[in-house]
Design a protein around this nucleic acid. Structure first.
Ligand SMILES: [Mn+2]
Ligand SMILES: [Mn+2]
Ligand SMILES: [Mn+2]
Ligand SMILES: [Mn+2]
Lengths: 221, 221
DNA sequence: CAAATTTTTTAGACTCGTCTAAATTTTTCT
DNA sequence: AGAAAAATTTAGACGAGTCTAAAAAATTTG
């Protein structure tokens, strides 16, 4: 089945919006995510439904079919592999890769993506710590990660990912030296606003607001 | 200026068709090259003309403006750099790269292409021996290359490129061990059909028809 | 040179993805 | 429940890129 750029983006959006949730995904949430109008979404849902990529009933929200999910995962796989390529091989910053990967993920060639996977030595996580589906759509589990704001004083942790992948947040983390794989220790947590003082390997102490700690994923060292 | 995939393909086609020639490029030749209809070409020429990317007068053929040529060269640069990437880094065969490069050439990111160029160590030629324009659109000259059918008995030569980049021709050459950089010596030329017997480094002798030799570029060793 | 042929453009239509405005259905609130 | 609000779909339109069929211009030929 040959899909357009746009159809793939819709499937990916529906996949992300349905993560966790058991009900169908709403028209408005898709519209918001794709920066388009609800009426455009309705049109596309009918089209994807005709192609048996989603189960869609008027006013009832939408869910991916097995085939639709397969395509969404394949697109996510391509996106994340390209992000690894950009960071590892072309020295992009982790805040710079998303926009380009958004284009590269639509290149159609099975051989290309499998060769790229091999060239990158079968990475399991992208530059933001998100797991990369393998050829069959299986994820490596992001082992016992949790959000930094749930840690307690004294914890020694490693950064494994981020929840917010916006450029501004990533640049902020980069400036503070907080990147994937960096180790840290919780020195102090202020209960009145849940802000935290953490210490890095080089003894530098940094204070992070709760907004920040909620968006950093860590695991125990 | 943000161009569509299709507009870039038209500019590239016009560039190739105008190489050498001094008159304008004909509507029909563009249609044939892009596997479309003359009426579609006329529509697009008007559009490109409005954007000042081509000089177009009804019934008079078309030529690229300075800006149009710049975009065509940038697209060709991207195409050829991606082809080098696919062959050098991802182990594609030289017959397999064109189709994928046709997609990759439309990815929009200056940083991406400049980083790729650096990553590949600023290659001057693509896997078919075609020169890669630099950032400013300047080509490395393909030094004193000529078509193999113009060689004479006894010549010792190196393969520098091909005229025909069709998959079937490239697979044929590959099978015969005739790839870029391979050395050969002309043993004999049969005047009745201009077919040639050549000898490779490993002493293997191969007979090539004139159709083949016309499509292989060589230089003196 | 005038007729025949070829090339090119125009006219009108179609698909895709989008939009605005209006209608309809569902949900929320009093 | 019934009204108000919110969510969703429908109707109708548009631009990009394509097509076929027909008209117009240019070129070739007798
Ligand atoms: Mn991304
Ligand atoms: Mn995308
Ligand atoms: Mn090519
Ligand atoms: Mn192309």
């Amino acid at each position: 089945m040959k899909l357009t750029y746009t159809e793939e983006n819709y499937l990916k959006a529906i996949y992300y919006l349905s993560e966790g949730k058991s009900e169908g995904v709403s028209t408005n949430s898709i519209a918001e995510r794709l920066q388009t109008k609800a009426s455009s979404v309705t049109d596309m849902l009918r089209k994807l439904s005709d192609k048996k990529l989603v189960n869609y009933e008027k006013y009832q929200g939408v869910a991916l079919t097995r085939e639709g999910k397969k395509i969404a995962l394949s697109t996510i796989r391509k996106h994340r592999l390209w992000e690894v390529f950009l960071v590892e091989k072309l020295q992009f910053g982790w805040d710079e890769v998303h926009e380009v990967a958004e284009q590269l993920e639509h290149i159609q060639s099975t051989k290309l993506i499998d060769s790229l996977d091999e060239f990158l030595d079968y990475p399991e996580f992208d530059p933001h710590g998100d797991p990369i589906p393998d050829k069959n759509g299986k994820f490596a589990k992001r082992e016992e990660s949790f959000e930094l704001n749930n840690a307690v004083e004294g914890d020694k942790l490693l950064i494994t990912g981020v929840n917010d992948t916006s450029s501004s947040f990533l640049v902020f983390l980069q400036q503070q030296g907080l990147t994937l794989g960096v180790g840290l220790r919780i020195c102090e947590i202020f209960s009145f606003d849940r802000s935290m003082v953490i210490e890095l390997k080089d003894k530098r102490k940094i204070t992070l607001s709760n907004l920040v700690t909620r968006n950093i994923l860590v695991k125990h060292k």
